[in-house]
Design a protein around this nucleic acid. Structure first.
Length: 260
DNA sequence: ATGGTCGATCCTCGA
């Protein structure tokens, strides 16, 4: 089963590229983030034409997440089920079961600046994801794959210049600890398990020619429960998608499992 | 060629 995460930075602006990419790469499950689209505007028909069911959780201008699947799409659930009364104010997580795998498409808050209200929201958001998993998933027993734009670089290998990012959002001990809590539940960062090297990134800023200069970060993650991670065949970043006309600033991360 | 973003919105904000 080929599971992909891709922050497309507006699905409206990226639809043509996404359609062409699906036809070429043939994902079984494609999780999108930053669709920046209302639910009414989501192009279910375009994906149906390609043989995919789709679910979307959007709000319009910002955020928005989708799960697109050709291996079934059941038990769709937007938002958290973590026992708290306050819903997430943003459209940032969508769960679905695809081909027997429980999948979450996640767009973790950016954080903006360390100490900013939005940074505290980011830490709280990752805590809610943790509690949602504890409440609703049996990671030791079931295939669960949590993917998305985490806006956190787990260690210094995931940053083009750790010195330039020292003390900045995405690399603080607090943010890294919030992701580590997910790993401590048993989730495996399958890309890092398979690739030791630094300099392998999934996002490059549009500004200052960051991509041709190699100035990126690895912030798009595929986190798999042990039963899923044990069946990993390969995982890589399709950095070709960062090239060409009107790319997203993120490239797809592709993980193939021999599940099912 | 010695610089340098993009998208959605409403001309600024968020990333």
């Amino acid at each position: 089963m080929r599971i992909v995460t891709w922050n497309v930075n507006s699905l409206k602006a990226r639809l043509g590229r996404v359609e062409a990419w699906i036809a070429a790469a043939e994902p079984d499950v494609l999780c999108l983030q930053e669709t920046k689209m209302a639910d009414e505007a989501f192009p279910h028909g375009a994906f149906a034409t390609l043989g995919y069911e789709s679910a979307h959780h959007g709000e319009g201008r910002w955020n928005g997440v989708a799960v697109i699947s050709r291996v079934g799409l059941d038990d769709v659930r937007p938002g958290f089920a973590d026992g708290r009364d306050d819903p997430d104010p943003d459209a940032r997580i969508l769960w679905a079961t695809c081909g027997g795998v429980r999948v979450a498409s996640c767009y973790i808050p950016n954080g903006r600046e360390v100490g900013h209200d939005h940074w505290h929201y980011k830490l709280d958001w990752l805590g809610r994801l943790h509690d949602d998993l504890v409440t609703n998933a049996d990671l030791a027993a079931d295939p669960v794959v949590v993917v998305g734009d985490f806006n956190v670089a787990i260690d210094d290998r995931d940053v083009w210049d750790p010195a330039a990012w020292e003390g900045a959002t995405h690399v603080t001990p607090e943010e890294r600890a919030a992701v580590q809590r997910l790993v401590d539940l048993g989730l495996v960062d399958v890309f890092r398990e398979r690739h030791d090297a630094g300099g392998l990134f999934s996002w490059w800023d549009y500004r200052d020619l960051a991509f041709p200069k190699g100035r990126g970060m690895r912030i798009d993650l595929v986190l798999a429960s042990p039963p899923a991670a044990a069946t990993l065949d390969f995982v890589f970043v399709d950095r070709n998608e960062r090239k060409g006309e009107k790319p997203s600033d993120h490239a797809p991360v592709i993980a193939d499992f021999t599940l099912g």
